[in-house]
Write a protein that binds this DNA or RNA. Structure first.
Lengths: 144, 144
DNA sequence: ATCTCAATTGATATAAAGTATCAATTGAGG
DNA sequence: CCTCAATTGATACTTTATATCAATTGAGAT
């Protein structure tokens, strides 16, 4: 098991960010959550540990970690974004029409597709979103 | 060319919704937009046609159409959701960050990917959305 | 054509999530 | 142990979406 806290801390310092008390607490709480937590959810957890830490600090720390590619916000609906740990590359989603459950997967056949498109449409690609809609096993069972 | 407005109208009535003036105007504006519009964006367009129509009506109509599976909200970030038309299961778009121009394309390398995913996640795929974000040629020229 | 009543509407208020500002505080290097 | 830029957090604000409710409307019955 790799010491994620260490990895995150180092990455911050390597990029010139101070490793402050607030940031340490936030990192710990974030990692303890195992990912899939909202910003405000994290604020609550953090405050159980250190009531003095402000909302903005949590938001800003999440923003920095996102910039560094260590976490990633996932927008699944109109509510708050969930932040997930980015141990590995990127994520695509299966969104169930029945229950709005979001299943993540990593396979990415789009790199190649992107290159193709770049050329054909003279378009410089910065990112992409892929979502498959459908029914997960549970919802098929219900509606059957 | 299929009469989308007719399709949408019928679908509403089939499900017991009244086809009111407001809804007709909203449907027309939505279809005219070609998809890829935000709720508030649609409110503006609708009001050029009929200034009296309220924001809530537009939001509610979008909700109904989503329920019926005719459109679908896409959440790409912290901003407003974009609604896209669900004519035929899938859509591929290049969305320019500079001018918001949307380029559509047909190539679909995702059929195969879909089959793979179906099996692995026990997920019955009904459609998908792929969006590449980036800069079109014109906008690269401007910012260069 | 008119009536009737539930569906629909829209003004208004509110909630939820994220962003901007700025004076006060902090911490890492000298 | 200074110093000064990075960081913090209280506060205010913006944007997006939702709830409420009295007034209006439309589709079927007459």
């Amino acid at each position: 098991m790799d010491d994620q806290l260490g990895v995150f801390s180092n990455r911050l310092q390597q990029h010139g960010y101070r490793l402050t008390t607030a940031r340490r607490v936030i990192l710990e709480a974030l990692l303890a959550s195992g990912g899939h937590i909202t910003a405000d959810g994290l604020v609550e957890v953090v405050r159980q540990q250190s009531p003095g830490i402000g909302r903005m600090t949590v938001y800003r720390t999440l923003e920095i970690l996102s910039e560094l590619g260590l976490i990633r916000p996932v927008y699944q609906g109109t509510g708050a974004a969930h932040y997930i740990l980015m141990e590995n590359g990127h994520h695509h989603h299966l969104v169930c029409s029945g229950c709005d459950r979001v299943i993540e997967f990593d396979e990415c056949v789009l790199e190649e597709m992107g290159r193709l498109i770049s050329g054909r449409f003279d378009f410089q690609i910065q990112g992409h979103v892929v979502e498959f809609f459908g029914l997960c096993a549970d919802c098929r069972r219900v509606s059957a």
